[in-house]
Structures are given as structure tokens and as C-alpha cells.
């Protein structure tokens, strides 16, 4: 009887410790998240109730306060003004904003892009007309959404970026040989069956990142190919585990929005790399 009593006592103690540790970890995670959120809101230029309490308690450093003031001009998005409005009105207002922004781009001679997240479509446009359109099969987004305004592509990054072929003219090259080559070139043959020294669409990567000036990163990926499948699997693991935790624990990271766009066809992803030249402007929106 005594042994049984001791065992049940031990079990009770173990359960107590388990509950205590779990409660502590929940409280710890909550505090960490709150702190992180507060810190992120300083970056955005506003403060949370927890932060205001910390300011009162003198826990916010001078540099943090300065950062807050500096970033105040980059006002955070506000949805308060639109609260209570019917969905249809919001839709019209949104379209209104989109048209205003598009008009800014359409007035210029450069071509621009419009990414419609609802219709899963990337349009390449000039003067308001669609030059080329690509439909993507899948879409993922994380972090705070980007504001509905013109954004500019700063640079593209890829694991295997295309390299331009450099022609080194060989002065010693035999002229006869050259003439022979020219003769061969002028022979009528089926196209596409020979190698040319050129940077073509097939040389473009099918998995790459587009980095925009507002902090948005768009990852373009194609679903075909072994390398792409491996990459997608790795991305899936990160997407379902690391990214949510990262945004939850480190709230600053949610200010770096990220889109992942999947194309069924590898050539379509490559065409995006080709058409999206550095500095291209465009709009990303969810109608």
C-alpha cells in the first residue's frame, strides 16, 4: 500500500512539473512574441500597449525611441478608415487606387507588369494594353501585404544566373574556315537543331527571386524538373515550419513580405526572368 502511495505521489509530482514547465513555456513564448511585436511596431512607427508600458517604465532605450520617430513618416497602413464600409465600396475604392497607379505607369514609354493575385495572373503591359500574359498555378504569401502602389524591381537573384558569352575575336582565325562556316550557315536546314552562341530563353533560370524596392521578395518557381521538385520540397518544409515560427517569434521579419509563385511550365518561369528587367515597375494587387 505504501509503495502504491509513493508511486502515485511521484506521478503527481511529475504531472505538476510537466504542467509547470509547459505553462512557463507558453508564458515565455507569449512574452517573447509580445516583445517582438512591440519591437516591430517601433520599426513601423507606432507602439503597442505593452511597449507604452515599457516606455513608462523607462525600458526603451534612446536609440529605439529615435528609430520610432524616424520611421514615423513611413506611416503604417490603416484599415480603420474603411471599417464598416460595405465590401462593394471597398472593392471600388481599391480599383480606384489601382487605376490611379496604373495610369502613372501607362503614361510612360516603358512596359510594366501587373500581378493579379486573385486571378493568378502576371500581365506585361504597355500604355494600358496587355503585351503578354502568364497564368500561374499556385501562390503563397507570407508577411504583411504590400501597399497598393507602384513598386520597382531592384534586382534578380538566382542560384544559376545566366552568363553572357564573351566573344574574343581571334585575329589568327583562318579566313577560309570562316567562309566555310558562313557557307554552312546559309544552307537551308530545319531550325532549332543547332547550337548558337547566344543567350536565349532556355538559358534563363526557372527558379529565382525578384527583389523589389518596398522590401517584397517574389520567388518564381516552376513545378517541372527534378531540381525544381527538390527545391519545392525544401520550400514546403520551410513554409510549414520555419516561416510561421519566424514571423511569430521575430515580428520584424513579417515586415518583409514574401510571395511564392509557381508555374506549371518551366518556359513560363524563364520568360518572366527574361521580361522582368532590372528597374521594371509594376503593381501587385488582390482585387
Amino acid at each position: 500500500m505504501k509503495t502504491r502511495g509513493l508511486r502515485s505521489e511521484k506521478k503527481r509530482v511529475r504531472a505538476f512539473w510537466l504542467i509547470a514547465v509547459l505553462s512557463c513555456s507558453v508564458v515565455f513564448v507569449f512574452l517573447l512574441s509580445e516583445l517582438s511585436q512591440a519591437s516591430a511596431q517601433i520599426e513601423k512607427g507606432s507602439k503597442s500597449p505593452v511597449l507604452s508600458q515599457m516606455v513608462l517604465a523607462g525600458k526603451v532605450t534612446g536609440s529605439q525611441a529615435r528609430t520610432k520617430d524616424k520611421n514615423k513618416q513611413e506611416s503604417p497602413p490603416s484599415t480603420d478608415k474603411l471599417k464598416g464600409l460595405p465590401e462593394e465600396t471597398i472593392k471600388i475604392l481599391k480599383e480606384n487606387k489601382f487605376l490611379e497607379e496604373e495610369l502613372k505607369l501607362a503614361g510612360k514609354p516603358a512596359y510594366y507588369f501587373v500581378i493579379n493575385l486573385k486571378e493568378k495572373k502576371v500581365d506585361l503591359k504597355a500604355r494600358g494594353m496587355v503585351l503578354k500574359s502568364w497564368n500561374f498555378s499556385d501562390l503563397r504569401y507570407s508577411g504583411k501585404p504590400v501597399p497598393l502602389k507602384v513598386t520597382s524591381l531592384t534586382h534578380k537573384t538566382a542560384l544559376d544566373p545566366p552568363e553572357r558569352k564573351i566573344i574574343q575575336p581571334d585575329e589568327e582565325q583562318d579566313k577560309d574556315e570562316k567562309e566555310m562556316n558562313e557557307m554552312k550557315e546559309s544552307q537551308p536546314e530545319a531550325t532549332g537543331t543547332f547550337e548558337v552562341e547566344a543567350l536565349e530563353l532556355a538559358d534563363m533560370p526557372s527558379s529565382f527571386d525578384l527583389n523589389f524596392d518596398d522590401g517584397l521578395k517574389i520567388s518564381i518557381q516552376s513545378k517541372s524538373g527534378l531540381k525544381e521538385t527538390f527545391h519545392q520540397t525544401w520550400e514546403n518544409i520551410l513554409w510549414y515550419t520555419w516561416y510561421p515560427i519566424k514571423h511569430f517569434i521575430i515580428r520584424k521579419s513579417e515586415l518583409k513580405p514574401r510571395l511564392v509563385i509557381y508555374f506549371e511550365n518551366q518556359r513560363e518561369a524563364q520568360a518572366i526572368y527574361w521580361a522582368f528587367i532590372d528597374g521594371i515597375k509594376g503593381i501587385i494587387w488582390f482585387p
Binding site: L93, K94, L117
Partner: peptide
């Protein structure tokens, strides 16, 4: 627990992409 809480937060954020989010929208 952390993952669950993170996912709640993540879904909340994702939903924001579909709603209005613009400082310019007036």
C-alpha cells in the same frame, strides 16, 4: 504549442493579403 500559435498568427497575416491593406487608400 509554438507551431500552433505561429500558425494562428500566420493565417491571420495571410488573410490580410485578401483584405484592404493600403495607407494610400482613402
Amino acid at each position: 504549442i509554438t507551431l500552433s500559435l505561429s500558425w494562428v498568427h500566420h493565417l491571420k497575416l495571410s488573410a490580410e493579403w485578401k483584405t484592404v491593406w493600403s495607407s494610400e487608400l482613402e
